[in-house]
Design a protein around this nucleic acid. Structure first.
Length: 884
DNA sequence: CACTCCCGCCAATTA
DNA sequence: TAATTGGCGGGAGTG
């Protein structure tokens, strides 16, 4: 290399001199001038001429293809140049250019220049995106390698990924056939379908996974046993598949690539973090979660990601989670493929310009395929089709939707920011509202004393504008989200108007505490997590395109966000930090008061969430069909619509086409996802914490449990005792009455709503939930047991109860010191959401890898708990927990 | 120090 | 058996 470089460089530029390393120099041949220090290499433009290149050329020369060096040259340059800039989106390396670009560039050969992404761009630049069907372009590995000036090995990396997307196919040894993007839509569609089957659930709770993170191995196993072995799509022949044998193939970059893409397609958020992907992809190994293995997987994912980035399908982003910032990739490619559900047929409408061609292309493609022996790719994915079927399965189960909300947890800073915004908005509204209405109203807000912050409700709408498209997607994806939204909307709408109306659906309460809180709306979505992010995104990103989202949408999201808000917030960024900060700094904080909790909580929460989320999805599905309609009815009315629409749009897949989806949407709409939460910040002390969650939704949520959705909403709210104490609490009765009407079945929940206020009195915090409240105490607080305890404690909604153990859910309860509990374990979290409950048994549901059930793995105790615990729990945990 | 990910050894597959 | 593929992970570049 050195030599090459030098040679190249020398002539060209002096290179910058980088530090000359002698060591490196060693390479230098005498010829070279010492001038350039070593590696300068940049080679950016490798002319074909570089020594290496030459060699390669020669070599390749053997092959017929070679010839066109000149072309190459030509291509090269342009390409490179363009690439350089292009590439990285932004990132770029830019500096180089600025001034002396050339020289620098050359010099800079740095790693970036050698990056696989850049290399891939160069590679892609050589071929048309939409080649004429007639002409087949064959790719000679040797040739390309020589042209691009890289070793063959690198070309394999690129080709393997491209092959996974059917952009190319192997024709023979050293020969690949370039298909271009004609079939990309189909391929993606297939992958999406396959992904839904395999990962759908998982994705749902991506977040969850996050929690899991480490553990993930386990869940995977559980969930998806089957899939693991075989490549999803597996182009490979079925038979081979094999099982066992496929040694290499299974691990192949190709398969990993497909799976990776599937994750994006299945993900609501369209954002997949590397670690999660790695975990999921590790599959087989599941058990062993070697760290090393994980690292290796991640390396590979980077390789794949670089290629996909070059294809313009994904881009790198960062997701902030409780743990901190994590590298992640966001899907920026087409989301809807021709037929969503449909199978293959189409290609994506999205971009393709050449429909007709495509087909043709397809044909070609097929042919090519044929040629290959190895992978036959046709579309057959194993079992992919069944996707839908899969979904259904869920129906039987009663999962609670609640989890969804929890899911919200999300990570993102953005969320936080969003949350904040919301909070602010809410605050304002609240204030207004308060003025207008007094406590009396169901929703009443209490005026807050000092701060005023109190929560408010949630109307998501108002609040979050931000939500971006992306966000929505998250929630939506499954359906869950959709549910949630509707409910919310109503509420939101109210708020917006300022009406006191209260929407039936949502009640919220306000407490005066000093600080504040958040609220949120519905939530259902499993997405919570997603949502959250969104919210955050919104804030942050809004700038980005997404921002545009219509208010309505925003609202939804917001609502969603809200749901999880508190937790999420924490999570997100620096959870702990922020929280803390928030408390102090922020006027409103969403969240949790205590820090201690935070970190732990966050995790835990997430974990819990995830599971739930998963469930949710399932539910959704199930629900959708059955319940959907009803739900729809609910109150939500207006908002819903918009939301739904949005959702739909957002939804990726599911929705539209299939009827089922529709149902879902309805359901979603039905559900009330209103914003339910409130958080109260405790003032300082908070010893207790106050947290709460949504109040609203309850009804739906509650009921949902059984029904549909879930429940996301958790009606309960916790308030900090202290603060509250002073105040009278309020519950939102809203539910009851108002809600009730709504009714969906969920409403039943309403009943739950009853709470006894008495509890309020209790020293501590109060709880109110629209739905049910539970006393946390009930369950043993501390025990964290994961599941069990928690459940009991939880009582959240009836639903939960159902699902879970039988806690008493129904009653609305009030809890006393929540704080304690909270911290304790989730159990205490009693407030939990239904989901939490679920988890226990639900776990089974999950098939997805995510499922992880293994508690063991879970990180710490919490983990277990968390999982089980519903989002709520998580929240609680967070807040409270101090768990360490 | 963490994140990326280049590089190339060397085993599995193919020809 | 040689060549082609490609898994894999050390460790370097980057920030």
């Amino acid at each position: 290399e050195n030599i090459f470089d030098q040679s190249r460089m020398a002539p060209k530029t002096p290179i910058k001199n980088e530090p000359i390393d002698l060591s490196k120099q060693r390479g230098c041949t005498p010829e070279r001038n010492p001038i350039t220090p070593v590696k300068i290499i940049d080679r950016p433009q490798p002319d074909p001429w570089t020594p290496t290149a030459n060699l390669k050329m020669l070599v390749s020369a053997a092959s017929p293809d070679m010839r066109d060096r000149e072309k190459k040259k030509e291509l090269f340059r342009p390409i490179e140049n363009s690439e350089q800039r292009d590439t990285p989106d932004s990132l770029q390396y830019d500096t180089v250019d600025d001034s002396t670009v050339d020289e620098f560039e050359k010099q800079r050969p740095s790693r970036k220049q050698k990056s696989l992404g850049l290399l891939c761009q160069k590679f892609l630049a050589r071929y048309p995106n939409y080649p004429l069907s007639t002409e087949k372009t064959t790719i000679s590995l040797d040739e390309v390698a020589s042209i691009l000036g890289v070793e063959r090995r690198r070309i394999y990396d690129i080709v393997n990924v491209l092959e996974s997307l059917q952009l190319v196919s192997r024709v023979a040894k050293n020969q690949y056939c370039w298909h271009g993007r004609h079939n990309l839509g189909q391929t993606l569609k297939m992958l999406q379908e396959a992904g839904e089957l395999q990962y759908g659930e998982l994705m749902t709770f991506q977040h969850k996974e996050q929690d899991l993170e480490y553990k993930f191995g386990e869940r995977k196993k559980e969930t998806i046993p089957d899939s693991r072995d075989r490549p999803l799509l597996d182009f490979s022949e079925p038979d081979c598949i094999s099982a066992s044998a496929n040694s290499r193939k299974d691990k192949s970059l190709r398969i990993m690539s497909q799976k990776f893409v599937m994750l994006f397609l299945v993900s609501k958020t369209k954002i997949v973090t590397l670690d999660i992907a790695a975990k999921i992809l590790i599959e087989e190994t599941q058990d062993t979660v070697d760290h090393s293995k994980f690292k290796t997987k991640v390396r590979r994912l980077y390789d794949i990601a670089n290629v996909l980035t070059s294809l313009g399908l994904i881009k790198k982003v960062h997701v902030t989670e409780e743990r901190g910032r994590k590298p992640a990739f966001k899907w920026i490619g087409p989301v809807e493929f021709s037929g969503k559900t449909d199978e293959l047929r189409e290609h994506s409408p999205t971009s393709d310009p050449l429909p007709g061609t495509q087909r043709g292309a397809c044909a070609q493609f097929q042919i090519c395929v044929t040629g290959k022996q190895r992978f036959t790719r046709h579309a057959s994915f194993n079992g992919a089709q069944p996707c839908e079927g899969t979904r259904r399965k869920d129906s039987s189960e009663p999962n609670s939707p609640h989890q969804e909300r929890q899911a919200c947890i999300v990570n993102s800073d953005e969320c936080c920011s969003k949350m904040i915004n919301l909070a602010a908005v809410c605050r304002q509204k609240i204030e207004e509202d308060t003025r207008n209405s007094s406590i009396t109203s169901p929703f009443s807000l209490l005026p807050v004393p000092g701060d005023s912050d109190f929560c408010v409700n949630p109307l998501p709408q108002a609040v979050l504008p931000v939500v971006q498209a992306e966000v929505p997607s998250l929630s939506l994806p499954i359906g869950i989200s959709s549910h949630a939204p509707h409910p919310c909307t109503p509420a939101a709408s109210k708020t917006e108007n300022g009406k006191p109306t209260l929407v039936p659906s949502q009640p919220f309460l306000c407490f005066p505490s000093s600080s504040l809180f958040m609220l949120c709306g519905g939530l259902q979505e499993n997405n919570l997590s997603e949502t959250l992010p969104t919210a955050g995104d919104k804030g942050n990103r809004s700038a980005e395109a997404q921002a545009a989202v219509p208010p309505a949408v925003c609202q939804k999201r917001s609502s969603h966000k809200c749901t999880s808000p508190s937790p999420p917030v924490d999570d997100e960024e620096p959870a702990a930090k922020k929280q803390i900060m928030k408390q102090s700094d922020l006027p409103l904080s969403l969240v949790v008061p205590k820090k201690p909790f935070e970190s732990p909580k966050a995790e835990s929460t997430q974990g819990s969430v995830c599971p739930s989320a998963v469930h949710l999805e399932t539910y959704r599905l199930d629900l959708a069909s059955p319940a959907a309609p009803e739900a729809a009815n609910k109150e939500s009315t207006k908002p819903l619509d918009s939301e739904e629409q949005e959702k739909r749009s957002q939804y990726k897949d599911p929705d539209e086409p299939s009827p089922g989806n529709e149902h879902v949407s309805k359901e979603n709409s039905n559900q009330p996802f209103q914003p339910q939460y409130l958080y109260v910040q405790p003032t300082t002390g908070l010893s207790s914490f106050n947290l709460l969650f949504s109040a609203n939704q309850a009804p739906g949520a509650i009921s949902l449990a059984s029904n549909q959705l879930p429940s996301l909403s958790v009606p309960c709210v916790m308030v900090p005792s202290a603060a509250l104490a002073s105040f009278p609490l309020v519950c939102s009765p809203s539910f009851t009455s108002p809600l009730s009407p709504v009714p969906d079945g969920s409403f039943s929940a309403a009943a739950s709503m009853n709470f006894s206020m008495s509890s309020l009195a209790s020293t501590t915090p109060v709880f109110i939930s629209t739905t049910a409240v539970v006393t946390p105490k009930v369950s043993p607080p501390p025990s964290m047991d994961p599941q069990q305890p928690a459940q009991p404690s939880l009582h959240l909604s009836p639903v939960l109860a159902r699902s879970c153990s039988g806690v008493k859910v129904d009653s609305p309860v009030c809890m006393g010191h929540p704080v304690t509990f909270l911290k304790l374990q989730q159990p205490s979290s009693a407030p939990l959401t239904p989901k939490s409950i679920r988890p226990a048994h639900h776990e089974a549901f999950f098939k997805t890898p995510g499922s992880l059930g293994d508690p063991v793995a879970w990180k710490k105790n919490e983990g277990n708990q968390t999982r089980n615990a519903s989002s709520v729990q998580r929240r609680l945990e967070i807040s409270g927990t101090s768990p360490d």
